[in-house]
Write a protein that binds this DNA or RNA. Structure first.
Length: 313
DNA sequence: TTCATTTGACCTTA
DNA sequence: TAAGGTCAAATGAA
Protein backbone atom coordinates (compact mmCIF):
# COMPACT_ATOMS: atom_id res chain seq x y z
CA UNK A 1 0.00 0.00 0.00
CA UNK A 2 2.53 2.53 1.09
CA UNK A 3 6.09 2.67 -0.04
CA UNK A 4 8.64 1.03 2.16
CA UNK A 5 11.24 3.11 3.91
CA UNK A 6 14.79 2.20 2.99
CA UNK A 7 16.69 -0.03 5.38
CA UNK A 8 19.03 1.61 7.87
CA UNK A 9 22.70 1.89 7.00
CA UNK A 10 23.66 -1.08 9.11
CA UNK A 11 27.26 -1.17 7.94
CA UNK A 12 27.83 2.26 9.38
CA UNK A 13 26.08 1.28 12.56
CA UNK A 14 28.25 -1.79 12.95
CA UNK A 15 31.41 0.21 12.32
CA UNK A 16 30.52 2.72 14.97
CA UNK A 17 29.59 0.06 17.45
CA UNK A 18 32.84 -1.77 16.91
CA UNK A 19 34.75 1.41 17.54
CA UNK A 20 32.84 1.99 20.70
CA UNK A 21 33.52 -1.56 21.79
CA UNK A 22 37.22 -1.08 21.21
CA UNK A 23 37.26 2.10 23.26
CA UNK A 24 35.43 0.35 26.05
CA UNK A 25 37.96 -2.47 25.95
CA UNK A 26 40.77 0.04 26.34
CA UNK A 27 38.93 1.58 29.23
CA UNK A 28 38.55 -1.83 30.77
CA UNK A 29 42.31 -2.26 30.79
CA UNK A 30 42.74 1.04 32.55
CA UNK A 31 40.11 0.27 35.15
CA UNK A 32 41.07 -3.27 35.86
CA UNK A 33 42.06 -2.39 39.41
CA UNK A 34 38.55 -1.34 40.27
CA UNK A 35 36.08 -4.21 40.40
CA UNK A 36 33.09 -1.94 40.27
CA UNK A 37 34.37 -0.02 37.32
CA UNK A 38 35.30 -3.28 35.70
CA UNK A 39 31.79 -4.50 36.12
CA UNK A 40 30.39 -1.44 34.47
CA UNK A 41 32.79 -1.69 31.58
CA UNK A 42 31.94 -5.34 31.27
CA UNK A 43 28.35 -4.44 30.83
CA UNK A 44 29.22 -1.78 28.32
CA UNK A 45 31.14 -4.36 26.33
CA UNK A 46 28.27 -6.78 26.51
CA UNK A 47 25.94 -4.11 25.31
CA UNK A 48 28.16 -3.34 22.38
CA UNK A 49 28.40 -7.00 21.50
CA UNK A 50 24.68 -7.37 21.51
CA UNK A 51 24.17 -4.28 19.45
CA UNK A 52 26.80 -5.33 16.95
CA UNK A 53 25.33 -8.72 16.44
CA UNK A 54 21.87 -7.36 16.22
CA UNK A 55 22.97 -4.92 13.57
CA UNK A 56 24.88 -7.58 11.70
CA UNK A 57 21.95 -9.91 11.78
CA UNK A 58 19.69 -7.17 10.60
CA UNK A 59 22.09 -6.22 7.87
CA UNK A 60 22.31 -9.80 6.70
CA UNK A 61 18.62 -10.17 6.40
CA UNK A 62 17.57 -6.70 5.50
CA UNK A 63 18.27 -6.80 1.82
CA UNK A 64 16.21 -9.84 1.14
CA UNK A 65 13.55 -9.53 3.73
CA UNK A 66 13.01 -5.90 4.41
CA UNK A 67 10.32 -5.55 1.89
CA UNK A 68 8.89 -8.99 1.68
CA UNK A 69 8.47 -9.37 5.39
CA UNK A 70 6.57 -6.19 5.87
CA UNK A 71 4.66 -6.86 2.76
CA UNK A 72 3.54 -10.21 4.04
CA UNK A 73 2.24 -8.63 7.19
CA UNK A 74 0.20 -6.25 5.19
CA UNK A 75 -1.18 -8.79 2.83
CA UNK A 76 -1.91 -11.31 5.52
CA UNK A 77 -3.84 -8.95 7.67
CA UNK A 78 -7.44 -9.78 7.82
CA UNK A 79 -7.10 -12.81 5.67
CA UNK A 80 -7.93 -15.34 8.32
CA UNK A 81 -9.02 -15.68 11.86
CA UNK A 82 -10.07 -17.99 14.56
CA UNK A 83 -12.62 -17.65 17.26
CA UNK A 84 -10.38 -15.54 19.47
CA UNK A 85 -9.61 -13.10 16.76
CA UNK A 86 -13.24 -12.42 16.24
CA UNK A 87 -13.93 -12.24 19.92
CA UNK A 88 -11.02 -10.05 20.83
CA UNK A 89 -11.41 -7.73 17.95
CA UNK A 90 -7.69 -7.70 17.39
CA UNK A 91 -5.82 -8.11 14.17
CA UNK A 92 -4.80 -11.36 12.68
CA UNK A 93 -2.06 -12.57 14.98
CA UNK A 94 -0.78 -14.82 12.27
CA UNK A 95 0.46 -11.73 10.56
CA UNK A 96 2.43 -10.40 13.46
CA UNK A 97 3.50 -13.34 15.53
CA UNK A 98 6.96 -14.63 15.13
CA UNK A 99 8.23 -17.64 16.85
CA UNK A 100 11.01 -16.45 19.05
CA UNK A 101 14.34 -16.96 17.40
CA UNK A 102 16.98 -16.43 20.01
CA UNK A 103 20.46 -17.23 18.96
CA UNK A 104 21.49 -17.22 22.58
CA UNK A 105 20.30 -20.43 24.03
CA UNK A 106 21.72 -21.69 27.28
CA UNK A 107 20.41 -24.76 28.97
CA UNK A 108 21.20 -25.51 32.56
CA UNK A 109 20.21 -27.95 35.20
CA UNK A 110 19.43 -26.07 38.34
CA UNK A 111 18.29 -26.97 41.77
CA UNK A 112 16.92 -23.52 42.15
CA UNK A 113 14.99 -21.44 39.73
CA UNK A 114 16.32 -18.39 41.36
CA UNK A 115 18.51 -16.39 39.12
CA UNK A 116 17.96 -12.95 40.49
CA UNK A 117 15.83 -11.90 37.60
CA UNK A 118 12.16 -11.24 37.47
CA UNK A 119 10.10 -13.49 35.28
CA UNK A 120 6.49 -13.73 34.42
CA UNK A 121 4.94 -16.97 33.41
CA UNK A 122 2.99 -16.81 30.21
CA UNK A 123 2.31 -20.39 29.39
CA UNK A 124 2.71 -24.01 30.16
CA UNK A 125 2.67 -26.93 27.86
CA UNK A 126 2.73 -30.65 28.14
CA UNK A 127 5.60 -31.99 26.14
CA UNK A 128 5.37 -35.25 24.40
CA UNK A 129 7.24 -38.10 26.06
CA UNK A 130 7.97 -35.90 29.00
CA UNK A 131 6.60 -36.52 32.41
CA UNK A 132 6.50 -32.91 33.40
CA UNK A 133 5.12 -29.93 31.52
CA UNK A 134 7.30 -27.14 30.34
CA UNK A 135 6.66 -23.71 31.74
CA UNK A 136 7.32 -20.60 29.72
CA UNK A 137 8.52 -17.40 31.25
CA UNK A 138 9.26 -14.02 29.84
CA UNK A 139 10.92 -11.06 31.45
CA UNK A 140 8.59 -9.01 33.60
CA UNK A 141 9.85 -5.95 31.77
CA UNK A 142 9.11 -7.28 28.34
CA UNK A 143 6.77 -4.48 27.54
CA UNK A 144 7.88 -1.58 29.66
CA UNK A 145 11.52 -2.00 28.75
CA UNK A 146 11.24 -4.19 25.70
CA UNK A 147 13.31 -6.88 27.30
CA UNK A 148 13.25 -9.97 25.16
CA UNK A 149 14.67 -12.45 27.65
CA UNK A 150 12.81 -15.67 28.06
CA UNK A 151 13.15 -18.76 30.12
CA UNK A 152 11.76 -22.24 29.81
CA UNK A 153 11.60 -24.48 32.82
CA UNK A 154 11.02 -28.16 33.03
CA UNK A 155 11.40 -30.55 35.89
CA UNK A 156 14.02 -33.14 35.19
CA UNK A 157 12.70 -36.55 34.42
CA UNK A 158 15.08 -38.43 36.61
CA UNK A 159 15.49 -36.09 39.48
CA UNK A 160 12.42 -34.24 40.55
CA UNK A 161 14.52 -31.89 42.61
CA UNK A 162 16.24 -30.32 39.67
CA UNK A 163 15.04 -28.26 36.81
CA UNK A 164 16.13 -28.04 33.28
CA UNK A 165 16.17 -24.35 32.57
CA UNK A 166 16.66 -22.92 29.14
CA UNK A 167 17.47 -19.27 28.85
CA UNK A 168 16.70 -17.62 25.57
CA UNK A 169 18.03 -14.22 24.87
CA UNK A 170 19.48 -11.72 27.19
CA UNK A 171 18.00 -9.35 29.68
CA UNK A 172 18.20 -5.90 28.23
CA UNK A 173 16.02 -4.42 30.89
CA UNK A 174 17.25 -2.53 33.86
CA UNK A 175 15.48 -4.03 36.75
CA UNK A 176 15.02 -1.47 39.51
CA UNK A 177 16.19 -3.97 42.04
CA UNK A 178 19.40 -4.40 40.14
CA UNK A 179 20.28 -0.88 41.08
CA UNK A 180 19.71 -1.65 44.71
CA UNK A 181 21.41 -4.98 44.98
CA UNK A 182 20.58 -5.57 48.58
CA UNK A 183 16.89 -5.39 48.12
CA UNK A 184 15.63 -8.88 47.97
CA UNK A 185 12.11 -9.42 47.04
CA UNK A 186 10.26 -12.61 46.96
CA UNK A 187 6.63 -13.08 46.20
CA UNK A 188 6.26 -16.69 45.54
CA UNK A 189 7.38 -19.89 47.05
CA UNK A 190 4.83 -22.13 45.54
CA UNK A 191 5.40 -24.80 43.03
CA UNK A 192 8.02 -23.58 40.70
CA UNK A 193 6.34 -24.74 37.59
CA UNK A 194 3.10 -23.20 38.56
CA UNK A 195 4.21 -19.86 39.73
CA UNK A 196 6.03 -16.84 38.54
CA UNK A 197 9.17 -15.68 40.12
CA UNK A 198 9.69 -12.24 41.37
CA UNK A 199 12.99 -12.59 42.95
CA UNK A 200 14.78 -9.51 42.11
CA UNK A 201 18.49 -9.37 42.22
CA UNK A 202 20.65 -11.22 44.62
CA UNK A 203 24.11 -10.08 45.28
CA UNK A 204 26.67 -11.87 47.34
CA UNK A 205 25.09 -10.55 50.47
CA UNK A 206 22.31 -12.88 49.78
CA UNK A 207 24.53 -15.84 49.49
CA UNK A 208 27.57 -15.30 51.57
CA UNK A 209 27.68 -16.11 55.17
CA UNK A 210 28.21 -13.10 57.39
CA UNK A 211 31.42 -14.46 58.69
CA UNK A 212 33.02 -14.55 55.33
CA UNK A 213 32.13 -11.22 53.90
CA UNK A 214 29.81 -8.33 53.80
CA UNK A 215 30.37 -7.90 50.19
CA UNK A 216 28.63 -5.48 47.96
CA UNK A 217 28.53 -5.07 44.26
CA UNK A 218 32.11 -3.99 44.42
CA UNK A 219 33.36 -7.00 46.22
CA UNK A 220 35.71 -8.93 44.11
CA UNK A 221 36.35 -12.13 45.89
CA UNK A 222 35.26 -13.64 49.04
CA UNK A 223 34.65 -17.13 50.00
CA UNK A 224 31.04 -17.52 49.25
CA UNK A 225 30.01 -20.31 51.44
CA UNK A 226 27.26 -21.73 49.42
CA UNK A 227 25.88 -24.35 51.61
CA UNK A 228 22.32 -24.96 50.78
CA UNK A 229 19.12 -23.17 50.12
CA UNK A 230 16.96 -21.71 52.71
CA UNK A 231 13.39 -22.03 51.80
CA UNK A 232 10.51 -20.14 52.42
CA UNK A 233 10.47 -18.01 55.42
CA UNK A 234 10.42 -14.76 53.60
CA UNK A 235 12.77 -12.27 52.12
CA UNK A 236 14.84 -12.04 55.23
CA UNK A 237 15.62 -15.65 55.02
CA UNK A 238 16.82 -15.56 51.51
CA UNK A 239 20.18 -17.06 51.31
CA UNK A 240 21.85 -19.60 49.23
CA UNK A 241 23.45 -22.22 51.24
CA UNK A 242 24.73 -25.19 49.51
CA UNK A 243 24.69 -23.64 46.30
CA UNK A 244 22.85 -23.45 43.19
CA UNK A 245 24.23 -26.45 41.58
CA UNK A 246 24.08 -25.62 38.01
CA UNK A 247 25.49 -27.05 34.93
CA UNK A 248 25.52 -25.56 31.56
CA UNK A 249 24.36 -28.26 29.29
CA UNK A 250 24.63 -26.30 26.17
CA UNK A 251 24.97 -22.88 24.88
CA UNK A 252 24.50 -21.58 21.47
CA UNK A 253 25.35 -18.05 20.75
CA UNK A 254 26.90 -17.85 17.36
CA UNK A 255 29.04 -14.89 16.74
CA UNK A 256 28.95 -13.60 20.23
CA UNK A 257 32.01 -12.90 22.17
CA UNK A 258 31.29 -13.45 25.78
CA UNK A 259 29.08 -15.12 28.24
CA UNK A 260 28.57 -14.30 31.83
CA UNK A 261 26.63 -16.24 34.25
CA UNK A 262 26.13 -16.65 37.90
CA UNK A 263 24.73 -19.11 40.24
CA UNK A 264 24.24 -16.56 42.92
CA UNK A 265 20.54 -16.73 43.06
CA UNK A 266 18.47 -16.98 46.13
CA UNK A 267 16.80 -20.19 46.94
CA UNK A 268 13.13 -20.58 46.57
CA UNK A 269 12.49 -23.95 45.16
CA UNK A 270 9.46 -25.28 46.88
CA UNK A 271 10.53 -28.81 47.38
CA UNK A 272 14.15 -28.61 47.96
CA UNK A 273 16.41 -31.56 48.50
CA UNK A 274 17.99 -31.40 51.87
CA UNK A 275 21.44 -32.22 50.74
CA UNK A 276 22.97 -29.84 48.33
CA UNK A 277 26.33 -29.92 46.79
CA UNK A 278 28.64 -27.09 46.21
CA UNK A 279 28.71 -25.03 43.17
CA UNK A 280 30.39 -27.12 40.61
CA UNK A 281 29.51 -25.47 37.45
CA UNK A 282 31.73 -24.46 34.70
CA UNK A 283 30.66 -22.28 31.90
CA UNK A 284 31.52 -23.34 28.49
CA UNK A 285 31.23 -20.84 25.83
CA UNK A 286 32.75 -20.50 22.45
CA UNK A 287 35.42 -22.94 23.35
CA UNK A 288 36.44 -21.21 26.52
CA UNK A 289 35.70 -22.77 29.83
CA UNK A 290 35.36 -20.45 32.74
CA UNK A 291 35.05 -21.49 36.30
CA UNK A 292 31.85 -20.26 37.71
CA UNK A 293 33.44 -18.64 40.71
CA UNK A 294 35.38 -16.42 38.44
CA UNK A 295 32.13 -14.97 37.37
CA UNK A 296 30.91 -14.63 40.88
CA UNK A 297 33.75 -12.30 41.47
CA UNK A 298 32.38 -9.52 39.41
CA UNK A 299 28.79 -9.94 38.62
CA UNK A 300 25.62 -11.35 39.97
CA UNK A 301 23.40 -11.23 37.03
CA UNK A 302 23.05 -13.31 33.99
CA UNK A 303 24.07 -12.00 30.69
CA UNK A 304 23.72 -14.05 27.62
CA UNK A 305 24.55 -12.38 24.43
CA UNK A 306 22.30 -12.83 21.54
CA UNK A 307 21.34 -11.60 18.24
CA UNK A 308 18.40 -9.54 19.12
CA UNK A 309 15.44 -10.46 17.07
CA UNK A 310 12.67 -7.95 16.98
CA UNK A 311 9.52 -9.25 18.50
CA UNK A 312 6.43 -8.26 16.67
CA UNK A 313 2.99 -7.87 18.08
C1' DT B 1 -8.18 -2.28 41.35
C1' DT B 2 -4.10 -4.14 39.75
C1' DC B 3 -1.27 -7.68 38.50
C1' DA B 4 0.08 -12.56 37.96
C1' DT B 5 -1.33 -17.22 36.78
C1' DT B 6 -4.07 -20.62 34.42
C1' DT B 7 -5.50 -22.71 30.44
C1' DG B 8 -7.61 -23.48 26.01
C1' DA B 9 -7.14 -21.78 21.45
C1' DC B 10 -4.33 -20.22 17.88
C1' DC B 11 -0.03 -19.94 15.20
C1' DT B 12 4.47 -21.48 13.43
C1' DT B 13 7.60 -24.82 12.21
C1' DA B 14 9.33 -29.19 10.90
C1' DT C 1 -0.32 -32.93 10.47
C1' DA C 2 1.75 -33.07 14.99
C1' DA C 3 4.24 -30.77 18.32
C1' DG C 4 5.94 -26.86 20.42
C1' DG C 5 5.44 -22.03 21.42
C1' DT C 6 2.54 -17.97 22.27
C1' DC C 7 -1.59 -15.32 23.06
C1' DA C 8 -5.17 -13.56 25.74
C1' DA C 9 -9.66 -14.21 28.29
C1' DA C 10 -10.86 -15.89 32.62
C1' DT C 11 -9.70 -16.26 37.19
C1' DG C 12 -7.54 -15.56 41.58
C1' DA C 13 -4.61 -13.21 44.88
C1' DA C 14 -2.88 -9.18 47.10
Amino acid sequence: MSSMAPPPPFAQVVDDLIKGQQFAAQLQDLLRASPKAGLIVDQILHTFSRAIHAAEAAAATTAGEWSSDVQSEVTDAGSAGGKRKAAAGGGDRRACRRKTQQSSVVTKTLKSLEDGLSWRKYGQKDIQNCKHPKAYFRCTHKYDQLCAAQRQVQLCEDDSGTFKVTYLGVHTCQDPAAVAPHVHHQTSTSDALHAGFHLINFGPTAVATPASTTSTMTTSTTNYQLTGPSIGSGPQSLKLEGGDHEEVLSSNTPGCSALRSTGAGAATAPTWPADQGDVTSALQYDGDVHLADQFFDNDYSMYFLEDIVPYHY
